[in-house]
Nucleic acid binder design. Structure first.
Length: 454
DNA sequence: TTTTGAGTTGTTCGA
DNA sequence: GTCGAACAACTCAAA
């Protein structure tokens, strides 16, 4: 018998957000249907996991409990206690790794410690990739519970939004294992061979979009690996792109490695000097960024894509995060919390790594001068302006030369395109060169102090 | 212990 | 337009 226990209170401050809940509902719906089709059933419960599990075990007479491990710090603590309580109650427990290629504690430096830099971490992983066991096929039949077990209806979990803001999500995604397998097949067939370059292009569907499926366990990274290897046999020319794709799986591993070894980084910078960083909290700036009204088209396009579909292209994530933390000087946690609520692939490990990396306070020594120029990034990665025009229709009629920087358009051009800056589309919230220099100065204030005074 | 090479994804400036 | 250098110095990981 399969059991899902809904217990967001046990996830503390980082309980799943609205977009994650939408996905979860759809995914559970699919899972229940898939189990039913094989003769089984999904029992849904709500409440503290330990009590619910003990209760279900009493009802069913179950002797053994199996699950796949989770890695968010609050859930590790919960599941450790859970396992002890179940053993005390006479149940046999066994947990497995399905979510990751390697357990976060398995990969160690020569000194036995955790890695803080991706490249050596990934080199160490690569030496063990070939030894990974191949994924096993799912069973054909799943036995039904021997007697009826009380459970909730999915709707009782109250996961779907009350007002229908989820239409864009419905159109963009197919949650569930079937959708996940279809996505990975489509990716291998149509985009994998150009992934090395294509993954940077928000104007095309050339990234894998597997992140929410991976996050919800509908697909495992070992399955991804196996599928990619099979596809490689067909066209050898894609080797470089396949490596790039597998390396992205490696980043996911690295994020979990860091979260395991530095669990406080969900809320505090890994680089302690950043405790002193002169952030400049401003609700109006934050809100404009959230709503896609910064005046920088590539940023606003990304924020609107996120709001509409629950997802944003990774290249654009970096650009919007750089603008928020560096040019607008808003705390990276504000960005992390917004992503947490709006992303269907919100993952504590990946979200924490991404935001700390962009803010410069994370694991890799991100050089202080890495501040994305939203105009250059837009021209490089949205050369035909299709991404901007799709998400910012109010400036779509501007000629190519001004779509990425409407504030430079002469009055006559704006008038012809029917755009009045400040009314139809905002002026930039900040001047890029000035805010860039201000950010560089702010970084200088927290640089390593000189030698200690005598 | 010391040394050495290197570090996801960038931008700007000047030749 | 293109290209290479500069942008600080530091920390990490391995030899």
């Amino acid at each position: 018998m399969a059991l899902y226990v809904h217990s967001p209170d046990e996830e503390g401050e980082w309980r799943p957000g609205a977009a994650s809940n939408w996905w979860l509902h759809r995914s559970l719906e699919q899972l229940a249907a898939a189990l039913h089709a094989k003769g089984g059933a999904l029992v849904i419960r709500c409440g503290p996991a330990t009590e619910q599990l003990l209760d279900v075990a009493r009802d069913t007479g179950a002797r053994q409990v199996f699950w796949n491990r989770l890695y968010d710090p609050a859930l590790v603590a919960r599941d450790t206690q859970l396992k002890a309580r179940l053993w005390e109650a006479g149940l046999t427990c066994e947990s497995f790794n399905s979510a990751l290629l390697f357990e976060p504690w398995e990969i160690r430096t020569g000194q036995g410690g955790p890695y803080r830099v991706f490249t050596p971490f990934w080199r160490a992983c690569q030496q063990q990739l070939d030894a990974l066991p191949a994924p096993q096929p799912a069973p054909d039949r799943i036995p039904a519970p021997s007697k009826a077990v009380a459970g909730l209806g999915l709707a009782e979990l109250d996961l779907l939004p009350r007002i229908r803001w989820d239409r864009g999500l419905c159109a963009a995604w197919t949650p569930g294992e079937t959708g996940a397998l279809a996505r990975v097949e489509t990716f291998c067939d149509s985009a994998m061979d150009k992934y090395d370059e294509g993954r940077n292009r928000p104007d095309h569907a050339w990234s894998s979009r597997l992140s929410p499926h991976l996050h919800f366990g509908e697909l495992s990274p070992r399955q991804c690996l196996a599928t990619v290897h099979n596809a490689l046999a067909d066209h050898e020319g894609a080797r470089k792109s396949a490596e790039a794709f597998v390396r992205e799986l490696g980043w996911r591993e690295f994020a979990h490695h860091l979260l395991h070894h530095f669990p406080a980084t969900t809320n505090a910078p890994l680089d302690a000097r950043f405790e002193q960083f002169p952030w400049s909290p401003d609700d109006a700036l934050l809100r404009a960024w959230q709503r896609g009204r910064t005046g920088y088209p590539i940023v606003d396009a990304g924020m609107r894509e996120l709001w509409a579909t629950g997802w944003m292209h990774n290249r654009v994530r970096m650009v919007v995060a750089s603008l928020l933390t560096k040019n607008l000087r808003q705390h990276w946690l504000e960005g992390a919390r917004w992503f947490w609520d709006t992303l269907v692939d919100a993952s504590l490990a990946n979200n924490t790594l991404g935001w700390q990396w962009t803010a410069g306070c994370g694991a890799d020594a991100a050089p202080y001068f890495r501040i994305f120029n939203p105009v250059l990034q837009a021209e490089r990665y949205d050369p035909a302006r299709t991404y901007i025009r799709r998400w910012i229709p109010e400036i779509a009629r501007l000629p190519d030369g001004y779509v990425h920087r409407p504030w430079l358009a002469p009055a006559r051009v704006l008038a012809t395109a029917g755009v009045q800056l400040g009314r139809d589309y905002p002026q930039p919230l900040v001047d890029f060169p000035a805010s860039r220099n201000a950010a560089l100065s702010a970084y200088a204030t927290i640089k390593a102090p000189g030698p200690p005074a005598p």
